[in-house]
Amino acid sequence: MSAALPRRTQAERSDAMRQRLLAATLESLAEDGYAGSTLSSIVRRAGVSRGAQVHHYPNKQALMLDAADDLLRSSYRTLGAVLLSVADEDNRLEMLVQATWEQLFATPLYRAYTELLVASQRDAVLAEALRGMLLRVSKVFEPAVEHYFMPAPGTRENLKAVFLQFACLLGGLASQAHLLNDTAHVAAQLKLWTRQAKLVMHARKGVRLPPPRPVEWDRPVHS
Protein backbone atom coordinates (compact mmCIF):
# COMPACT_ATOMS: atom_id res chain seq x y z
CA MET A 1 0.00 0.00 0.00
CA SER A 2 1.41 3.35 -1.02
CA ALA A 3 1.83 6.01 1.62
CA ALA A 4 -0.80 8.73 1.69
CA LEU A 5 0.29 12.05 0.23
CA PRO A 6 0.75 14.78 2.83
CA ARG A 7 -2.13 17.22 3.02
CA ARG A 8 -1.45 20.69 1.76
CA THR A 9 -1.35 23.47 4.29
CA GLN A 10 -3.87 26.29 4.20
CA ALA A 11 -1.19 28.61 2.85
CA GLU A 12 -0.40 26.16 0.04
CA ARG A 13 -4.07 25.79 -0.88
CA SER A 14 -4.49 29.56 -0.83
CA ASP A 15 -1.49 30.08 -3.08
CA ALA A 16 -2.71 27.41 -5.51
CA MET A 17 -6.09 29.14 -5.70
CA ARG A 18 -4.43 32.47 -6.38
CA GLN A 19 -2.29 30.97 -9.13
CA ARG A 20 -5.39 29.52 -10.81
CA LEU A 21 -7.00 32.94 -10.79
CA LEU A 22 -3.89 34.61 -12.18
CA ALA A 23 -3.50 32.07 -14.99
CA ALA A 24 -7.17 32.41 -15.90
CA THR A 25 -6.86 36.20 -15.92
CA LEU A 26 -3.95 36.19 -18.35
CA GLU A 27 -5.67 33.68 -20.61
CA SER A 28 -8.83 35.77 -20.59
CA LEU A 29 -6.95 38.99 -21.40
CA ALA A 30 -5.20 37.33 -24.34
CA GLU A 31 -8.38 35.78 -25.74
CA ASP A 32 -11.20 38.15 -24.72
CA GLY A 33 -9.43 41.47 -24.18
CA TYR A 34 -9.63 43.73 -21.16
CA ALA A 35 -13.28 44.68 -21.56
CA GLY A 36 -14.32 41.07 -22.09
CA SER A 37 -12.40 39.83 -19.05
CA THR A 38 -15.03 40.19 -16.38
CA LEU A 39 -14.69 38.77 -12.89
CA SER A 40 -17.47 36.30 -13.63
CA SER A 41 -15.79 35.01 -16.79
CA ILE A 42 -12.43 34.71 -15.05
CA VAL A 43 -13.96 32.81 -12.14
CA ARG A 44 -15.60 30.37 -14.56
CA ARG A 45 -12.37 29.93 -16.49
CA ALA A 46 -10.42 29.30 -13.29
CA GLY A 47 -13.03 26.85 -11.98
CA VAL A 48 -13.21 28.48 -8.56
CA SER A 49 -16.00 29.97 -6.50
CA ARG A 50 -16.86 33.66 -6.48
CA GLY A 51 -16.16 33.63 -2.75
CA ALA A 52 -12.59 32.45 -3.39
CA GLN A 53 -12.09 35.27 -5.87
CA VAL A 54 -13.41 37.89 -3.45
CA HIS A 55 -11.18 36.51 -0.69
CA HIS A 56 -8.04 36.99 -2.77
CA TYR A 57 -9.05 39.93 -4.98
CA PRO A 58 -11.88 42.28 -4.00
CA ASN A 59 -12.13 43.82 -7.45
CA LYS A 60 -11.06 43.39 -11.07
CA GLN A 61 -8.28 45.93 -10.88
CA ALA A 62 -6.51 44.17 -8.00
CA LEU A 63 -6.65 40.90 -9.93
CA MET A 64 -5.37 42.48 -13.13
CA LEU A 65 -2.44 44.15 -11.39
CA ASP A 66 -1.35 40.98 -9.64
CA ALA A 67 -1.60 39.10 -12.93
CA ALA A 68 0.62 41.68 -14.62
CA ASP A 69 3.13 41.48 -11.78
CA ASP A 70 3.15 37.68 -12.01
CA LEU A 71 3.72 37.90 -15.76
CA LEU A 72 6.69 40.24 -15.39
CA ARG A 73 8.27 38.02 -12.74
CA SER A 74 7.84 34.99 -14.99
CA SER A 75 9.45 36.91 -17.86
CA TYR A 76 12.48 37.72 -15.71
CA ARG A 77 12.90 34.06 -14.74
CA THR A 78 12.61 32.97 -18.39
CA LEU A 79 15.28 35.38 -19.59
CA GLY A 80 17.55 34.50 -16.67
CA ALA A 81 17.32 30.80 -17.48
CA VAL A 82 18.16 31.47 -21.13
CA LEU A 83 21.19 33.60 -20.30
CA LEU A 84 22.62 31.11 -17.82
CA SER A 85 22.06 28.19 -20.19
CA VAL A 86 24.31 29.66 -22.90
CA ALA A 87 27.79 28.30 -22.24
CA ASP A 88 29.33 30.11 -25.22
CA GLU A 89 29.42 33.81 -24.36
CA ASP A 90 29.86 34.71 -28.03
CA ASN A 91 26.32 33.47 -28.71
CA ARG A 92 24.70 35.00 -25.64
CA LEU A 93 23.29 38.07 -27.35
CA GLU A 94 21.85 36.13 -30.29
CA MET A 95 20.28 33.58 -27.95
CA LEU A 96 18.83 36.32 -25.77
CA VAL A 97 17.31 38.16 -28.73
CA GLN A 98 15.72 35.03 -30.18
CA ALA A 99 14.45 33.73 -26.85
CA THR A 100 13.03 37.11 -25.84
CA TRP A 101 10.99 37.25 -29.02
CA GLU A 102 9.87 33.62 -29.12
CA GLN A 103 9.23 33.01 -25.42
CA LEU A 104 7.94 36.42 -24.34
CA PHE A 105 6.80 38.84 -27.02
CA ALA A 106 5.44 36.40 -29.61
CA THR A 107 3.10 34.76 -27.10
CA PRO A 108 -0.50 35.13 -25.93
CA LEU A 109 0.86 36.33 -22.58
CA TYR A 110 2.30 39.44 -24.19
CA ARG A 111 -1.09 40.09 -25.80
CA ALA A 112 -2.51 40.00 -22.28
CA TYR A 113 0.02 42.61 -21.16
CA THR A 114 -0.80 44.75 -24.19
CA GLU A 115 -4.46 44.72 -23.19
CA LEU A 116 -3.50 46.12 -19.79
CA LEU A 117 -1.37 48.83 -21.39
CA VAL A 118 -4.20 49.92 -23.67
CA ALA A 119 -6.70 49.94 -20.81
CA SER A 120 -4.36 52.07 -18.69
CA GLN A 121 -4.64 54.92 -21.23
CA ARG A 122 -8.17 55.57 -19.94
CA ASP A 123 -7.74 54.38 -16.37
CA ALA A 124 -5.56 56.68 -14.26
CA VAL A 125 -5.39 54.29 -11.31
CA LEU A 126 -4.35 51.38 -13.50
CA ALA A 127 -1.80 53.59 -15.27
CA GLU A 128 -0.25 54.71 -11.99
CA ALA A 129 -0.02 51.14 -10.73
CA LEU A 130 1.58 49.90 -13.95
CA ARG A 131 4.01 52.82 -13.86
CA GLY A 132 5.14 51.84 -10.39
CA MET A 133 5.40 48.22 -11.44
CA LEU A 134 7.62 49.09 -14.40
CA LEU A 135 9.90 51.08 -12.12
CA ARG A 136 10.26 48.01 -9.91
CA VAL A 137 11.04 45.89 -12.96
CA SER A 138 13.70 48.34 -14.20
CA LYS A 139 15.51 48.01 -10.86
CA VAL A 140 15.86 44.30 -11.59
CA PHE A 141 16.54 44.29 -15.33
CA GLU A 142 19.02 47.17 -15.40
CA PRO A 143 21.55 45.50 -13.06
CA ALA A 144 21.11 42.30 -15.09
CA VAL A 145 22.29 44.11 -18.22
CA GLU A 146 25.58 45.07 -16.55
CA HIS A 147 25.85 41.61 -15.00
CA TYR A 148 25.79 39.81 -18.37
CA PHE A 149 27.18 42.42 -20.81
CA MET A 150 29.87 45.09 -20.97
CA PRO A 151 30.65 47.94 -23.38
CA ALA A 152 32.89 47.06 -26.32
CA PRO A 153 36.41 48.53 -26.15
CA GLY A 154 36.45 52.16 -27.19
CA THR A 155 32.68 52.67 -26.82
CA ARG A 156 30.72 54.64 -24.27
CA GLU A 157 27.20 53.52 -25.05
CA ASN A 158 24.68 53.24 -22.24
CA LEU A 159 23.84 49.55 -22.50
CA LYS A 160 20.66 50.02 -20.48
CA ALA A 161 19.42 52.44 -23.13
CA VAL A 162 20.39 50.00 -25.89
CA PHE A 163 18.28 47.26 -24.29
CA LEU A 164 15.42 49.69 -23.74
CA GLN A 165 15.52 50.33 -27.48
CA PHE A 166 15.39 46.55 -27.96
CA ALA A 167 12.28 46.26 -25.79
CA CYS A 168 10.60 49.04 -27.76
CA LEU A 169 11.45 47.27 -31.02
CA LEU A 170 9.96 43.99 -29.81
CA GLY A 171 6.88 45.72 -28.45
CA GLY A 172 6.27 47.38 -31.81
CA LEU A 173 6.77 44.14 -33.72
CA ALA A 174 4.47 42.25 -31.37
CA SER A 175 1.71 44.85 -31.57
CA GLN A 176 1.68 44.60 -35.38
CA ALA A 177 2.32 40.86 -35.71
CA HIS A 178 -1.34 40.08 -36.44
CA LEU A 179 -1.25 42.56 -39.34
CA LEU A 180 2.17 41.78 -40.79
CA ASN A 181 2.00 37.99 -40.52
CA ASP A 182 5.56 37.97 -41.83
CA THR A 183 8.12 35.95 -39.88
CA ALA A 184 10.87 36.92 -42.33
CA HIS A 185 10.34 40.61 -41.56
CA VAL A 186 10.59 39.95 -37.83
CA ALA A 187 13.71 37.83 -38.25
CA ALA A 188 15.37 40.55 -40.35
CA GLN A 189 14.63 43.21 -37.73
CA LEU A 190 16.03 41.05 -34.93
CA LYS A 191 19.21 40.33 -36.89
CA LEU A 192 19.66 44.01 -37.70
CA TRP A 193 19.37 45.04 -34.04
CA THR A 194 21.75 42.28 -32.99
CA ARG A 195 24.39 43.39 -35.49
CA GLN A 196 24.11 46.97 -34.29
CA ALA A 197 24.21 45.97 -30.62
CA LYS A 198 27.34 43.84 -31.08
CA LEU A 199 29.20 46.95 -32.22
CA VAL A 200 28.84 48.48 -28.76
CA MET A 201 28.71 45.52 -26.34
CA HIS A 202 30.16 42.13 -25.54
CA ALA A 203 29.04 39.35 -23.22
CA ARG A 204 31.00 39.13 -19.98
CA LYS A 205 33.09 36.01 -19.69
CA GLY A 206 32.59 33.38 -17.02
CA VAL A 207 29.15 34.49 -15.80
CA ARG A 208 27.53 31.42 -14.26
CA LEU A 209 25.35 32.91 -11.52
CA PRO A 210 22.25 35.10 -11.81
CA PRO A 211 22.48 38.78 -10.83
CA PRO A 212 21.43 39.84 -7.33
CA ARG A 213 17.80 40.96 -6.99
CA PRO A 214 16.62 44.08 -5.17
CA VAL A 215 14.60 43.44 -2.01
CA GLU A 216 11.60 45.17 -3.60
CA TRP A 217 11.28 42.36 -6.17
CA ASP A 218 10.33 39.86 -3.47
CA ARG A 219 7.42 41.97 -2.25
CA PRO A 220 4.12 40.96 -3.92
CA VAL A 221 2.24 43.77 -5.58
CA HIS A 222 -0.99 42.93 -3.75
CA SER A 223 0.53 43.23 -0.24
Rank of each mutant, 00 (worst) to 15 (best):
M64R: 07
L93R: 05
V221P: 01
P6H: 09
L93S: 01
R7W: 04
L209A: 08
A35C: 02
L116R: 03
L71P: 06
A197I: 02
G51Q: 14
R18W: 13
S28G: 14
R122S: 10
F166W: 12
R7I: 06
V125N: 15
A203Y: 09
S75K: 03
T100K: 02
V43C: 08
L65I: 07
R213M: 12
E27V: 13
L109A: 10
E102L: 14
Q19D: 06
A62L: 08
L126A: 06
Y148L: 01
E89D: 11
P153I: 07
R77K: 08
L72S: 05
R156H: 12
V54T: 05
A119H: 01
D90N: 14
T9Q: 08
L173S: 02
P153C: 11
A81I: 13
L84Q: 01
R156N: 01
H185I: 06
M17K: 10
N59D: 14
F141W: 03
F166S: 14
R50V: 07
L39Y: 02
Y57L: 02
D15H: 12
L170T: 02
A30E: 08
E216N: 08
L209K: 08
L159G: 04
R136G: 01
Y57F: 11
Q189C: 12
R204N: 12
E128K: 11
A87G: 15
A112S: 12
V207S: 07
L117T: 14
C168E: 07
H55L: 10
P212H: 15
D69G: 03
P212C: 10
A46F: 04
Q61K: 12
R77W: 11
A24P: 09
T78F: 04
A188V: 05
A152I: 15
A127Y: 05
H56I: 08
D90L: 09
A187R: 11
D88P: 00
S75L: 07
A127N: 13
V137E: 12
V140K: 00
R131W: 10
D123T: 09
P214M: 05
L79D: 01
E128Q: 15
L170K: 00
V207A: 04
Y76S: 07
A187E: 09
P212S: 11
T78N: 05
L84M: 07
P58L: 08
M1K: 10
L126V: 03
L83E: 03
I42C: 03
F163E: 15
V125K: 13
T9S: 15
M201P: 05
E115C: 03
D123E: 04
H147P: 02
L5G: 13
E94W: 02
L39E: 14
A106C: 11
L170M: 05
S74Q: 08
K198H: 13
A177C: 01
V125F: 07
G154A: 13
